[in-house]
Every structure is written in C-alpha cells, then in structure tokens.
Design a protein around this nucleic acid. Structure first.
Length: 356
DNA sequence: TGGCCTTTGAAGCCT
DNA sequence: AGGCTTCAAAGGCCA
C-alpha cells in the first residue's frame, strides 16, 4: 500500500484500507456472512469442482484469471476508495478506536469458533498450527496495542534509518508485564508457547518474534510457537556455506487472517488443499466488515513495525533476488532467474490464451 | 523432491 | 510515478 510506506501515512493507511463493501454490489451478499455458512462452503466446493472440470478445457486458466481480475479490480477500487477516505480516517480510528484494548479484547470476538471450537478436528488442526496467529503480537505490551503508542511514533517505521533502531522501547514490546499476560484469557488455546519458552527460543537479539522461521524449506507449524522469525539454515547437506538466517517478510493483513482462519475453514469444509482453502479465505476476507479487516491491517502494521525494529537492516529485497528463501548465492540467483522466466512465460501464455 | 496452485497485501524492481 | 514482479503461509498434488 502506498500510503503505508509513504512517509508517515503508513500505519494509518493500514486501517484505511477498509472497503466500503456496500459500494460493491457483489459484496452485498457477503456482508452479513461473518459467520461463513456451510452453504458458502458447499458453494465454494461446488465451484471448485466446477473449476476443476473447467480446468480440463484450455480456457480454464483464462477463466481463473478472469476471476482474479475481478478481485484485483475490486482491490483497486478498494484502494482508490481508501485513498479518498484515508485523510478522513487518518488518526480518527486511533483516536477513537473501534476496538479498544485490541487485540486482547477482540479475541473473544468475531471468530470464537476459531479459538474454542469443540470439534476434535478443529482442535487437532489448531494444535498443529500451534497457536493463534495473532499471538504473534502478544509480546507487545498492552500499550503497544493502543491506537497510537506514545513511545512509538507511528511514523517511525517509515523513516528507515532515522528511527529504525532497537530502542529501549523494545523491551517494552517484548517484556511480559504480568498484567499484560494476565489479560490473556485462559480460553486462548493458542496462547503462544514462545512467551513461556526460555531464551532458547529467542531470536539472536534476545527477542522472540514470530516472523522468524525455522530451518526447513517449508515452515514448520510451530514456527510461531517458537517465536522465531529467522530461518536458521541448518541443512546438514549444505554445511559448506554457513548460511545466514533467513528473515522472512512480515505477514500482511490477509496472511494474518489466513493463518487464523485456515484451521476453521479446513474443519468446516474438510478441504485440505491450500489453494482451495485460500480461495475460500479470499472470499471471506472480502466479506469481512471494515472493522474486522481493520483488526488485521492493524496487526499487520504492528508486525511490520516490530519487524523493522528487530531487523533494522532487513529489506524485502533480501528475500527477493535471492529467490530461494533469501539464501544468497549464484545458484540460487540462477534458480531465481529461471523461476522468473517461467512466470513470465506463463503469463505470456495466458495472454495469448486470452487473445485467442 | 521441489514446484505449482491460490489468495491479498507489502515492497522492490523496472520503465 | 505507475505498473509489474516477488514473497509471505499453507498443504495437497504432480512431474
């Protein structure tokens, strides 16, 4: 989001991303669907089935792209709208937070089933995930969830190199004031183990953070449990070059939402394929109210801020050209080149499909 | 075994 | 500046 990275506007821009869904006729049907119904799931399932059938035709990809195009244009509208509204809302939300005490107070809230589902299935799945994704931010002190932490200027993150330092405030971020932890209700089955882990789970900075990823290529389910952001690269085969830990990108609002809701969707529809799940989650994301989405935008903003404080020198670029999880090296660069080429080719193919 | 799929959003790259 | 590309998570599927 431009406003997120354009000096000073960031944080506020995040919540400004909320959509006036009612402007979108398509969205109307979704508005009241906070509790995603089985009907929707069935619908999605059938649509997925249809899609798979369609996929057998050459135009399948084009159709899918068309659907994506719809969503893209919606997102763009969304952004446009928000650009217009942002100045209005700028700060307004924080001055009068829609969810005071958030995220702690929001926890019991919109997705109770995601937290305390009685279904065995759900609990198993959630255990596999380890914890509630939003817990990644739990290490924040409560004040850090206040709309505009007095000690943490919201524009701080925007001025890289100016304010991006590990200040003493960080201790405030990660220390666990008894009161703060105490406010976390026992109902939080996803309570972060990282908060209870010893230093072994700490990031080299001594600060646990959820964006640190484990060594395996695919992220382990309990990565957030470990409170680790850094991929440690301990593959035995490749011990020639001591790889520096890979710092993953902070999760955006939608990713945070996905992490939270995935288990619920899986439990509801018994689908397991992430591609299908993500389609559902994409729809549900659009069906969320502004307030609900705002939570995740705010969380994402906090994530980014925290990430920047933890890794002042990190850039998304680190994981960009390296291609393979940020591991630098000629081979990986070559792989990245191939990958890039493949994608371009694929897109060209799709373009030709469309033109036919 | 590793890439693909699929989603949205953030950020970097490129023109 | 604006458009395009990559990456972030996830796990089944397929070559």
């Amino acid at each position: 989001m431009p406003q997120l990275s354009s000096g000073g506007g960031d944080d506020l821009g995040a919540n400004d991303e909320m959509i006036a869904f009612k402007d979108e006729g398509e969205q109307e049907e979704k508005i009241q669907e906070n509790a995603f119904t089985e009907r929707d799931l069935a619908d999605l399932k059938s649509s997925l089935v249809n899609e798979s059938e369609i996929n057998q035709s050459p135009s399948a990809a084009a159709i899918r792209r068309g659907q994506q195009g719809e969503q893209r244009s919606f997102a763009e509208k969304h952004r446009e709208h928000l650009d217009g509204v942002s100045k209005q809302q700028d700060g307004g939300m924080y001055k009068t937070p829609a969810y005071p005490g958030y995220p702690f107070l929001m926890l019991p809230d919109p997705y109770p089933s995601s937290v305390s589902t009685s279904s065995n299935k759900v609990s198993v799945v959630q255990q596999s995930h380890g914890m509630h994704p939003l817990t990644s931010l739990l290490p924040y002190g409560n004040d850090h969830f206040s709309p505009s932490p007095p000690h943490l200027p919201t524009d701080m993150s925007q001025k890289t190199g100016v304010h991006r330092h590990q200040s003493q405030d960080l201790s405030g971020y990660y220390s666990l004031p008894p009161g703060g932890v105490g406010q976390i209700t026992p109902s939080m089955g996803w309570f972060p183990h990282s908060l209870m882990l010893g230093p072994s789970s700490m990031h080299p900075t001594g600060i646990p953070h959820p964006a640190i990823v484990p060594p395996t290529g695919k992220q382990e389910h309990d990565q957030y449990d470990r409170g680790m952001y850094v991929k440690q690269q301990v593959e035995p085969k490749r011990e020639k070059e001591p790889k520096k830990p890979v710092i993953k990108k902070p999760l955006n609002a939608f990713m945070l939402y996905m992490k939270e809701m995935r288990a619920k969707v899986i439990a509801e529809c018994t689908l397991k394929e992430s591609a299908a799940i993500n389609q559902i989650l994409g729809r549900r994301w659009h069906a969320l109210t502004r307030e609900e989405q705002a939570k995740y935008y705010e969380l994402a903003r906090k994530e980014r801020q925290l990430h920047m404080q933890l890794y002042p020198t990190w850039s998304a670029r680190d994981n960009y050209e390296a291609g393979l999880s940020g591991v630098a090296g000629e081979k990986n660069k070559a792989d990245w080149g191939k990958k890039k080429r493949r994608k371009r080719e694929k897109q060209q193919d799709s373009n030709t499909d469309n033109s036919l």
